[in-house]
Design a protein around this nucleic acid. Structure first.
Length: 691
DNA sequence: AAAAAAT
């Protein structure tokens, strides 16, 4: 909060607990529209008669307003402030069945109806979507130029009647917003349309041309495509509302140019007054200058979170678990599921296990989904509670049809596990998610917060788990140090099991680890190679050295995936990544051939009751029989003491069982900075690493 | 070679 005030050049300190609205001098001079049937047109004309101020010139000051009381939707209807059909859609038990407004909804409603630009920050799952949809649809209804009448059952709206445009960073989120918008607008005559990639452009266009459009919701690429093409007939010459959902994401490096381009297709705001709304749970400092450039100088910054507070929910316990190796990730996930199901079986009143597992690369989601599917279909799992779980995958490399199917299936399912990339990290509303599990340090703080926000929505509970390799400790601290995550060193022994050893014990954890290992081994080798490459791209910077990262990835490939030797990295790629002289890097061109080979032989690989795939391929077998792939393994990779875990029993130098009991003494074998010896080199204590 | 997003 203080940071915000400072940015606005303000020195007064406000009470920390109360939500508040910041407004600027210009905005506070605007007459407040009191009439119940507030006309947005009036407000807008006042706005447009304002001289244009550049953000740099405008002197901003803060004004505190008493925190507004939370209202009932029904009251808005009774006051005549919001259309009665809209209110009925929201409140009726057979429709959206909502009674009371949330804080963001209540705090932004009047500002938006007045026509002010708004930047709103509120925690995940607190109803931001409805907060902008409700007043926006009302504003369109208030516009005297909008014709909602019909000829018979046909709308009289043209495709050039777009009054409001909502931009979303992902296709699924755009569709989700559209579904909600149609619910709110039902029976009002307002036409809601979508324009997202991955769908047939022509049929989508024809639908808009046929039915017309008042509110268009879409993703940047397709919106650019449609709006830039004069032949489509879809245009927005009368547009007066632009909404950026997940605004900070849309204003970041990847999207900002698209957004700018789209704005170029919209009418000049000096001719047609335009209101811009931005919503997100996170508003990092870096985007504030773009925010100021995009919003009018008089914009309202509505925050329902204190700025010195991380916008996560208090009702989400968050835990970080350190892993011995990357290969421990999937066993640890399985252990979370088993532990939870055990508590349920014990009579605790818990909702069914419904989890999203986030990875930083798409290939990892594929590997994990395949492995867990192998597990689920195996005989010993088929009959257990875990065998009932749906295992789903979602990432941008799937076809749009597959993506939609996964998302819908997970939405509807009372339980299951969704292995996901960051496509679902923001905004997606899957009901009743009990667990959000993140594997690896997320790329930035915001990503962590948004992923976590897929649970504990709409007043419900949830828990967050973060599984991190111990070597990513420094990265974790710098990226997530401010977030209230507790270390958990007791719940998941599978995270610390030594997976280079054959599992011998009969403990629940050794069972978990060997089950998962077998399931991972049975995943197609091409997926494992892609996972390796994907992880290479994401985590190399998270470790203190490239050498360390390679060592850790190689270990996962062998001890976790059950492969004979690390995959070959093309010389050109290795060069680009600066891996030329890093020990352990397997340079060669065999992987590509390997992947093509495997891709042509369909997915499958699993026969009920056993793991037929890959378990004896390039792993427990001698190697050298896979064209170009395993042959490369003897180059540069320090695997002198490694064999496959399935043969572990015949090695005299192995201890039996897992060594997860050794965490205390064993944890210091990787420093968090600087050079280190090989995996057998001297061990060093890790400062500040206290189990 | 690493989320996402146009074909």
């Amino acid at each position: 909060m203080l940071g915000t005030l400072r940015r606005f050049g303000v020195s007064n300190v406000l009470r920390a607990s109360a939500p508040r609205t910041l407004s600027t001098r210009w905005a506070s001079q605007l007459p407040k529209v009191q009439a119940p049937s507030a006309s947005s047109v009036l407000t807008r004309s006042l706005h447009s008669s304002f001289p244009k101020f550049s953000a740099a010139v405008a002197q901003e000051s803060a004004e505190t307003e008493p925190s507004q009381k939370i209202e009932k939707f029904a009251e808005l209807g009774e006051q005549g402030f919001i259309d009665s059909t809209i209110i009925k859609n929201i409140t009726h038990p057979s429709r959206m069945n909502l009674e009371t407004m949330t804080e963001v909804q209540s705090m932004t409603l009047r500002e938006i109806v007045k026509g002010n630009d708004v930047l709103a920050q509120a925690k995940t799952g607190t109803g931001k979507t409805l907060a902008f949809l409700l007043p926006t649809l009302q504003n369109i209804l208030n516009d005297p130029g909008v014709d909602v009448s019909k000829v018979g059952r046909y709308s009289r709206t043209a495709p050039s009647e777009i009054r409001a445009l909502i931009i979303s960073p992902t296709r699924e989120l755009a569709e989700q917003i559209a579904v909600e918008a149609k619910k709110v607008a039902f029976g009002t005559g307002l036409i809601v349309q979508t324009a997202v990639g991955g769908t047939q452009k022509r049929s989508g266009l024809m639908k808009i041309q046929r039915e017309g459009c008042h509110l268009l919701i879409g993703t940047p690429g397709r919106l650019k495509d449609i709006l830039s093409d004069p032949w489509t007939g879809v245009s927005a010459p009368k547009l007066n509302t632009l909404i950026l959902d997940e605004a900070d994401r849309l204003l970041d490096q990847g999207f900002a140019p698209d957004i700018k381009e789209i704005q170029g297709f919209l009418p000049n705001p000096s001719e047609i007054d335009r209101q811009t709304l931005m919503f997100s749970a996170t508003v990092p400092r870096e985007v504030m200058s773009l925010v100021r450039q995009t919003l009018k100088p008089g914009f309202q910054f509505v925050q329902t979170v204190r700025e010195d507070e991380v916008p996560t929910h208090h009702r989400v316990p968050q835990k970080v678990v350190w892993m011995r190796g990357l290969e421990n990730g999937m066993p640890a996930v399985l252990e979370i599921a088993k532990n939870y199901e055990a508590r349920r079986a014990n009579g605790e009143e818990l909702r069914p296990f419904k989890a999203i597992v986030y990875y930083n690369s798409t290939a990892e989601t594929k590997c994990a989904a395949d492995a867990f599917n192998n597990l689920r279909r195996s005989d010993d799992f088929g009959k257990t509670a875990l065998g009932e779980l749906k295992m789903l995958e979602i990432n941008s490399r799937l076809t749009q049809g597959e993506r939609t199917r996964s998302a819908e299936s997970f939405r509807r399912s009372p339980s299951g596990i969704l292995f996901s990339s960051d496509v679902t990290a923001r905004g997606m509303d899957f009901p009743d998610v009990t667990h959000v599990i993140q594997v690896g340090v997320p790329r930035d703080t915001e990503t962590y917060i948004h992923r976590l926000g897929r649970t504990a929505r709409a007043g419900k509970e949830g828990e967050g788990w973060l599984l991190v390799h111990k070597g990513e400790d420094a990265c974790f601290r710098s990226r997530l140090g401010r977030i209230p995550i507790k270390e958990d060193t007791v719940s998941l022994p599978a995270a610390w099991a030594d997976m280079s050893q054959q599992a011998t014990g009969s403990s629940a954890t050794s069972e978990t680890v060997s089950q998962m290992k077998a399931a991972m081994t049975a995943v197609g080798p091409s997926h494992k190679i892609k996972s390796y490459m994907g992880q290479l791209g994401t985590i190399i910077g998270n470790f203190s050295s490239k050498r360390f990262a390679i060592e850790v990835l190689n270990k996962q490939f062998v001890d976790g995936f059950g492969m004979e030797s690390p995959p070959q990295i093309a010389p050109r790629v290795a060069q680009q990544m600066g891996l030329g002289n890093i020990p352990g890097v397997n340079i060669g061109t065999g992987s590509r051939r390997m992947m093509e080979e495997d891709d042509s032989s369909s997915s499958g690989g699993f026969s009920r009751g056993g793991f037929s795939r890959g378990g004896d391929r390039g792993f427990s077998r001698g190697g050298g029989d896979r064209g170009g792939f395993s042959r490369g393994g003897d180059r540069g990779f320090p695997r002198g003491d490694r064999g496959g875990f399935s043969r572990g029993g015949d090695r005299g130098d192995r201890r039996g069982g897992f060594s997860y009991g050794e965490r205390r003494g064993d944890r210091g074998d990787r420093g968090d900075r600087g050079d280190r010896g090989s995996s057998r080199g001297p061990r060093r204590a890790l400062e500040g690493f206290d189990f």
